[in-house]
């Protein structure tokens, strides 16, 4: 195993001081090719909090979410999920890359919902939901099926259990995707523009499921253009532009009187 060199030196987390922090990002840098996509992102999301991320296209929102579950390797900074360093282990003052198995184990507790659903087309709705619990969590088939059916019922799809994704509407597919992520009993859920690929009349049904999740106390980071959702459900709002967090605060306050010029310009366009 090679010791990875991470240029930015970050301070260790004060885990004991604030035990309720679920996701913490410090000075996260990421470039792809010549382009610096993330240029020092800081973020703190407490357990049970719904954090909405806003920002213009290309500002690095998706990239940042993907860094949180290590789908992308970061070039600098640190990310902790539930006080566990993501993707690395710090030993003897050096960072060591985690093995594939260890990364997979970390990802189990981080649910992710994609803009384009990414359901497995050759499996029915229920098979999509129970695949990872059976293969990864080693649940028994009967147990997984029971829980999977409950989860599909919870997202309002009790009658679509044996339907293939190709025969579901976009909103139904996205709800199956949410159930699939929940089946792994994640500590935190990441949503990357979950309603952007949907017809307007289908957006509501997905947002309702997410509101329901938020009420149940799930920690959520939601990249979205739905200002209404951010204002109503969000506990905090983060505005990103050019690979950095420009402004953050309570959703109502940020939306009502943005302090930053770029935030103001963006909100003027979206509202």
């Amino acid at each position: 195993m090679t010791g990875a060199t991470i240029p930015e030196q970050a301070t260790p987390p004060e885990a004991e001081a604030d035990a309720t922090v679920m996701v913490r990002a410090e000075n996260v840098h990421k470039s792809s090719g010549h382009l610096e996509v993330l240029r020092g992102v800081d973020l703190e999301v407490r357990a049970g909090e719904v954090c909405c991320v806003l920002g213009p296209s290309g500002s690095g929102k998706s990239t940042f979410l993907r860094c949180i579950n290590h789908l992308e390797k970061i070039d600098g900074g640190r990310i902790w999920v539930d006080d566990e360093l993501v993707g690395y282990r710090e030993r003897g003052g050096r960072l060591h890359e985690l093995r594939e198995k260890e990364v997979a184990a970390q990802r189990r507790s981080i649910g992710m919902v994609f803009q384009r659903f990414n359901l497995f087309p050759h499996m029915t709705a229920l098979e999509n939901v129970i695949e990872a619990p059976i293969r990864v969590r080693r649940e028994s088939r009967a147990e997984a099926r029971k829980r999977g059916t409950d989860l599909l019922e919870r997202v309002g799809l009790a009658d679509k259990v044996n339907t293939y994704p190709g025969k579901l509407s976009g909103g139904q597919q996205q709800r199956v995707a949410i159930a699939r992520a929940l089946a792994m009993r994640p500590k935190v859920m990441l949503f990357d523009e979950p309603t952007s690929a949907l017809d307007p009349e289908l957006v509501g049904e997905v947002l309702d499921v997410m509101k329901d999740l938020a009420r149940d106390g799930m920690t959520m980071i939601v990249v979205t253009h739905e200002i209404g959702f951010a204002r109503e459900v969000g506990d905090s709002l983060v505005f990103m532009d050019g690979g950095v967090v420009v402004e953050s605060g309570l959703p109502r306050e940020v939306i009502a009187n943005p302090k930053h010029e770029r935030t103001r310009a963006f909100l003027a366009k979206v509202l």
Partner: peptide
């Protein structure tokens, strides 16, 4: 096969082998 499929499987904590056998190869 859409790379999003592999990412979705990876995000669920499936290993590369599981992803290949259960998600990518069947498609």
């Amino acid at each position: 096969v859409d790379p999003g499929q592999g990412e979705a499987a990876g995000a669920l904590g499936m290993s590369r082998g599981q992803t290949l056998r259960r998600v990518v190869l069947p498609q």
